[in-house]
Amino acid sequence: MNGNHSYHAGDIVYVFHRNPHTQDVANVQSAAVVNHPKSPNELALFLYEDYYPLSSDLAVYSTEKEANQAYNYYYGDISKGTLNE
């Protein structure tokens, strides 16, 4: 997760999502922070009709601008569709 930010159910955040069928394709995707349906005391990301545990292993950004800046840093210019190798 990004810094010491605490998230709450209902927040909209931005994450990097890799296409599971084409591993060299990644994009910035919005996701909803929700209470995990199987563990109501835990938060999860709801993304593409699935739940992902919200943990410190994820790069989560509060704004799309922050996510795009990080994406550009790690993968290349998002507006040009270029990836760093």
Rank of each mutant, 00 (worst) to 15 (best):
H17N: 12
S39R: 05
G10R: 08
P37G: 01
A44G: 07
Q23H: 13
Y48D: 06
H36A: 06
H36S: 08
Q29V: 11
K65V: 12
Q29S: 13
I12G: 03
F16L: 10
D24A: 12
D11V: 00
S39E: 10
D24K: 14
A9T: 10
A32V: 00
T63H: 02
P53E: 09
A59G: 07
D50S: 14
L54T: 01
Q23A: 14
A31E: 08
L58V: 00
S39D: 08
V13Y: 03
H17Y: 14
T63K: 00
F46D: 02
T22I: 15
V25L: 15
Q29L: 12
V15I: 14
S55Q: 09
D57G: 13
L45Y: 06
S56F: 06
N41P: 00
V13C: 01
V28H: 10
V15M: 08
K65G: 08
A59F: 14
Y52D: 04
R18I: 10
P20N: 13
D11L: 02
V28T: 13
D11S: 03
E49Y: 01
L47V: 12
E64N: 07
L47T: 01
Y61I: 00
Y52K: 09
P20W: 07
A9K: 07
N35C: 11
Y51H: 10
A44C: 06
D50L: 03
A9H: 07
P40M: 01
P40V: 03
L58I: 02
H17V: 09
F16R: 05
L43G: 00
A59T: 07
L45M: 02
Y52M: 00
N19A: 11
